[in-house]
Simulated assay, not measured.
Amino acid sequence: MTELAKARTVQASRIVDELREQILHGDREPGSRLGQELLAAEFGASRMPVREALRALEAEGLVKIKAHSGAWVSGLDQEEFEQCYKLREVVEPMVIGESVPLLNTVQLDRIAELADLIDATGGARGLRSFLQLDREFHLLSYAGAAYPFLTELVTRLWNTTQPYRRELVRYMPDESFHSTCAEHHLIVDAVRSRDTEAAQSLVRLHIRRTRMTLRNYGEVLWTKDDD
């Protein structure tokens, strides 16, 4: 690899990391356009590493690239929402079932700590912190699974569904927030006791309840992408 190619790869990686954080934290709204020239100017790079970064983020489920239109932050789409959450209900219980027996003490302690930290966010009052901690809580609970393909799929699904979770928390009443926190602590108890079946059932219920709650918000959420 030439020095120029190495530099371009480093630039693309930096752009991926920064854009990913911006999208996951909601600094770039779902459905907003990602113009290559503007991004190149923003990151002080040529268009080639920007294109590489956008393709990488598309593979992660955070960006959609449309022919003759360009790149866009993935929007809120009712059909996509249903598919992703139903898939999560199948895949994530499977992954936590493989993970629970293999989590170490440090991971178990951190999972319990995260559940307490999530309680302290207050839900919508600490939206950014809630989303960051909630993501770490669940992905860490899956970290023991020795199935790279499945864990990569779970990460992609979490990326794709991040804007839906943001809207859920934004509109979440206190009662729903407390229910979410209670479910987290039940998951902690199941994981600590190495109760695989309980952990699987709780995760499945947790995801399904989120899906049903978001359904109730109706069409106000859906800014369906134009094909």
Rank of each mutant, 00 (worst) to 15 (best):
L4T: 14
A5S: 14
A7Y: 04
T9H: 10
V10H: 12
A12N: 06
V16N: 09
V16P: 05
L19S: 01
R20Y: 00
R20Q: 07
E21S: 10
H25K: 15
D27E: 15
D27F: 02
R28A: 02
P30I: 01
P30K: 03
P30E: 03
L34N: 02
L34G: 02
Q36H: 08
A40N: 11
A41I: 05
A41F: 05
F43D: 09
G44N: 11
S46A: 15
S46M: 11
R47Q: 14
R47Y: 04
M48S: 14
R51D: 11
R51Q: 15
E52T: 08
L54H: 01
R55P: 01
A56Y: 00
L57V: 00
E58H: 03
A59D: 15
E60V: 01
L62Q: 01
K66A: 11
A71S: 10
A71R: 00
V73I: 13
S74I: 04
G75L: 01
G75C: 02
D77L: 02
D77W: 01
D77Q: 02
E80F: 09
E80A: 15
F81E: 06
E82I: 09
E82S: 11
R88K: 14
P93R: 06
M94I: 09
V95H: 05
V95M: 06
V95T: 06
S99E: 08
L102Q: 14
L103S: 10
N104Q: 09
L108R: 15
L108C: 14
L108V: 09
L108N: 12
R110M: 12
L114A: 08
A115P: 06
L117Y: 09
I118E: 06
A120N: 11
A120D: 13
R125L: 15
G126H: 04
S129N: 14
S129W: 08
S129F: 10
L133E: 04
R135W: 07
R135A: 11
E136Y: 03
E136K: 09
E136H: 07
